[in-house]
Write a protein that binds this DNA or RNA. Sequence first.
DNA 1: ATTAATGCAAACATTTTGCACCATC
DNA 2: GATGGTGCAAAATGTTTGCATTAAT
Lengths: 157, 157
Amino acid sequence: MNNKKNEKITIEELKKILQERDYKMTEQRREILQIFLDQPSEHHLSAEDVHMILRTNKSEIGLATVYRSLELLASLDILLKIEFGDGCSRYELNLKPNVHRHHHLICLKCRKVIEFDEDKLDELEDEIAKKSGFAITNHEVKFFGFCRECQEKYEDS
Amino acid sequence: MNNKKNEKITIEELKKILQERDYKMTEQRREILQIFLDQPSEHHLSAEDVHMILRTNKSEIGLATVYRSLELLASLDILLKIEFGDGCSRYELNLKPNVHRHHHLICLKCRKVIEFDEDKLDELEDEIAKKSGFAITNHEVKFFGFCRECQEKYEDS
DNA sequence: ATTAATGCAAACATTTTGCACCATC
DNA sequence: GATGGTGCAAAATGTTTGCATTAAT
């Protein structure tokens, strides 16, 4: 596979992935996927976010359909489901389905989320797998703190 | 997993922590704290779990009070709030409030959660803090996979 | 034509809140 | 006695589901 760095997957390729598993590429799924393709990758959209974007796009897709689509796309590893502790599940495009490197830096004040790519956990993962007998398939790392802007706000007050 | 008995914090000490911040040590908070003191540290209790344990202890504390207490205790760093993606927040005693080392290994089949103490993330944390300007206060690492038992079940089928 | 997907509303689960009463300091 | 804290029920949230209708293959 010639996987260039930031080459985005196309709707046609996504359609193929769906059909391989006997799912249909519907207009609704197409529109939802297009939203993720159009977003900067560091955006993490909730079902409600997606629904709102659809509405501003004059699209009348039901919220239940949004939930069902997001869950399906996550089960196919097209989207990644993430929890940031803000009360709802969020999703982002899974750009590198074969590599599990996925870090987030979450500001505890303004809830901003920043992504990171570095990964130094393979060694730790191996160690833990050996000790526990687990077959580890993925890991998730979150750093919590206060972003530069919120630190400044604290200093002012 | 090894359940080493660290010197556990006492109710008296917890009372002091509450009073330092002008919170009262009520009978309800005492009972809820006692549950966490009595649990092996690798148990992660939801509000519903705590409420059920109270009921079996013939205690009639309202569920809203349980929620309010857990949130308060987490805000005081007495408890840690964790999300495992099972639809509810879970809490555990924060044994080492000054050290943020907190790993979980989650079985994607049976939802078993195992704890780990090792930490190799300080270096990565420093690096990320420098690059991002964040003041990092904590981090959270989760490994997902299949535990030994569930792997065996897969092999059988 | 078959089968899955959608839309809607209703159900559900978890958590939060308003308010009168009660307990702790 | 003042100030929080509790209990209850009601509401708010986020998500799922049943079912008739619609659309993709």
